[in-house]
């Protein structure tokens, strides 16, 4: 099957620090890929390069055959690659519901609907419902209905995390990049959050890459693992094989245990 996303020979240095060194990864459509590695291994840099926040010094990124290396984050997002953040990036002064409406508004605008001269209520592309209904539905799916009218800045950590992920779903992403979706929540909650995400993804159909430090979560949800160390990919295989790799054990899994 053809890769939906193909990164070839990515390199990125910050001064003397190597954040990415010859990263090659072809991601298949509808796969679920776990990105593992210690802090500073290059996972977030990888996501930042795919989404255009950082430009690689060398190498190309292709999405559905198209070169997206030079695109800005908003253009990458418009193509259907959406991301969540390690530290939730929310509109702090708006309620959860309004956060969703802003996101949906952008989707409407990019589709040329709901503008200054249009009349009546526009339907959100991909969902075929008015904006308010789409917002309600996605909040519901992530168990956020009870926080609908609370300001984002007063929400508890786990809820902020979920809202951050829910925001990525408004644009019907084809690829979902989740940067530590379960960081900062308790061990039991991790599985709940991942189940919710996976249920939503299954319903909408998307390719998922997620960064995760908990190897149990990785082996449960990922079909494939990319292990990062010092800016390189040191293992690329199914979870049971990758996690058993001696190098991964030494640099990644061991590192997590020691921490």
């Amino acid at each position: 099957m053809a890769a939906i996303l193909d990164a070839q020979g990515l390199n990125k240095n910050f001064g003397a620090v190597t954040a990415a060194s010859d990263i090659n990864a072809a991601i298949e459509r509808d796969s679920v890929v776990g990105l593992i590695g210690t802090n500073g291994a290059g996972k977030t840099t990888f996501i930042n390069m795919i989404t255009g926040y950082l430009k690689p010094d060398r190498g190309r990124i292709r999405y559905e055959g198209r070169d997206i290396t030079e695109l800005a984050p908003r253009d990458v997002t418009r193509l259907g690659i959406c991301r969540s953040f390690q530290i939730p990036q929310l509109y702090a002064s708006l309620t959860a519901f309004e956060n969703m409406l802003v996101g949906i508004g952008v989707v409407l605008r990019n589709a040329g609907r709901g503008g200054f001269f249009s009349r009546g209520r526009a339907l959100v592309p991909g969902h075929d419902l008015p904006a308010e209904d789409v917002a309600e539905r996605i909040l519901e799916r992530f168990g956020l209905a009870e926080y609908r009218d609370k300001n984002a800045q007063v929400l508890p950590g786990g809820v902020r995390k979920l809202l951050d992920i829910a925001l990525t779903m408004v644009a019907k992403p084809k690829i979902l990049l989740l940067d530590e979706p379960t960081s900062g929540v308790s061990a039991e909650e991790k599985f709940v959050i991942m189940e919710m995400i996976m249920a939503a993804v299954r319903a909408e159909g998307a390719t998922v890459l997620f960064v995760e430090h908990d190897m149990e979560v990785v082996s449960r949800f990922a079909g494939r693992v990319l292990a990062f160390y010092d800016g390189r990919i040191i293992a690329d295989a199914a979870p049971e094989i990758a996690l058993a790799d001696p190098e991964v054990k030494r640099y990644v899994v061991g590192g997590v245990l020691r921490a």
């Binding site: 989404t51 800005a72 984050p73 908003r74 253009d75 997002t77 418009r78 959406c82 991301r83 990036q89 929310l90 509109y91 702090a92 002064s93 708006l94 802003v102 996101g103 508004g105 952008v106 989707v107 605008r109 990019n110 925001l167 408004v170 644009a171």
Partner: peptide, 17 residues
């Protein structure tokens, strides 16, 4: 989009605007 830009511009960009 106004208050969204005020609150968090990174997110605005990452929503495709």
């Amino acid at each position: 989009l106004a208050s969204a830009i005020k609150d968090n511009e990174i997110r605005v960009e990452y929503m495709g605007a």
